[in-house]
Amino acid sequence: MNPKKLTIEKVQEALRKEKYICDRALATVVYLSIAMGKPVLLEGEAGVGKTEVAKVLAEVMETKLIRLQCYEGLDANTALYEWNYPKQMLRIKLEEVRRGDRDAVETEIFSEEYLVKRPLLEAIQTDGSTPPVLLIDEIDRADMEFEAFLLEVLSDFQITIPEIGTIRAKQRPYVFLTSNRTREIHDALKRRCLYHWIDYPTFDKEYEIVMTRFPHIREQLARHICAFMQQVRQMNFYKRPGVAETLDWASALLTLNRHELDEKTVEETMGCVFKYREDLHHLQEELVGKKLDLEHIMKEAAAHSA
């Protein structure tokens, strides 16, 4: 897709075609990020589809997705570049035997051929008709130092390698950062990004997502699933399930050929929705105690269809 001819509607439509249902506000932010060349910072609970936005956008723009998964201790070497040290050593050994020119070897082993490119460098260097999508996933898991370093890269889109020189981006990649808010991101970094909070979907939106992903699912079952999820998210669980869990569950129910939710089915398949023993236990209690009433959920689902 040509980035110059985009509109908000086109973004929304294109994402939908790739089976990503998003509301207009998110489409606006994605569109603005492309138009203004500003990175996007997506926050939201786990499993609401933050990472998916970047993946789908790469599909839509028919370009490469470069992903940098953050973790504690992630450093510039892993994110940017590294010299291929063993290869350099081998080359030196070889030249020793051949009695080659020392200066020539020295310049050669610090050339691009001996560089191991990591995601950030790759994103900057990629040239093609459209810029790549750079996904920096779970930035909140990286250390503060890395954040500061990232700030530098994202403000100039250039990287300096002492031995080679400064590499400037030929075209700005589309940058997406995601965060689960396990800690606050520094203001300086936030200021450079467009911010969007992805909330849990409404019933209608979630229903649409399920129907888009599983066109063969019975409408009634889909409605039950969504009503159940809406209800569960209102309750006090340690980890509230996201859309990812909804889709897992729907897929599991389809595989098992279940067409409606009864207590037994729910109990058997709850592992798709809750991933902590405490939460599973809690759910059982609520089911028995009728705080989570399946019949009531069915009624609510029916009300939605009306």
Binding site: A25, T28, L32, I185, K190, L194, Y195
Partner: peptide, 11 residues
């Protein structure tokens, strides 16, 4: 959306 994404950076 255009204003909030630029001006706000906290849920």
């Amino acid at each position: 959306a255009a204003l909030s994404s630029n001006l706000i950076s906290d849920k």
